[in-house]
Amino acid sequence: MNSVGDPRDATRARTGDFVQALTGVQSRLYAYICSLLGDAASARDVLQDTNLALWDKAHDYDPTRPFLPWAYRVAYLQVLAYRKRCTRSRLLFDEELVNELAEETLRGDDDLDLRLEALGDCINKLTGSRREMIDDRYLRGESVDRIAGRLHKPPNVVAATLYRIRKRLHECIEARLAME
């Protein structure tokens, strides 16, 4: 048995807290980064970069202070760094707009876990072709072009349908949250 006050215990507990905090904010960080970049594929890379950066700064972590604002700040810096790295190879928003979107996103930040839970119920309310299209796009990961080809529809029609389904899901989530 370790003695009371063993520094290894304290380090282990602190590391455990850090891991819990880091894994607990992943969905929020992803949504935040997506909004700033406008590109889901890039967002996955930047989430990875952000996790790495946070991991490298783990020794600075103070469990008595809120984790999320710190994580957002690190994510923001990683978005800017990614922009600079990929400015020639990828189409991304300019830095000024990234800054504005970051501020607006933080203003509207709320409990994304609640939203995720509401989303599950809202998806279950989708029926017929709407549900199939969400499954095709997000469950099976099919591109809009591939779905369009299979349904013999123009891609912009499929994209517009997905837009409307997402809008409906957003409204459903808001209604669910308003009831709670």
């Binding site: 894994t23 992943q26 969905s27 992803y30 949504a31 997506c34 909004s35 406008g38 889901a40 967002a43 996955r44 989430l47 979107l101 607006e104 996103t105 509207g108 994304l112 939203r115 995720l116 989303l119 599950g120 998806i123 969400i134 796009r137 997000y138 469950l139 990961g141 837009y163 997402r166 809008k167 899901l169 957003h170 989530i173």
Partner: peptide, 19 residues
């Protein structure tokens, strides 16, 4: 931002962003 957030949540919920 609303659309992108729902898009990100859908990707997350369907496990398309590996933790």
């Amino acid at each position: 931002l609303d659309q992108m957030r729902v898009h990100a949540l859908l990707e997350w919920q369907h496990g398309r962003v590996e933790p």
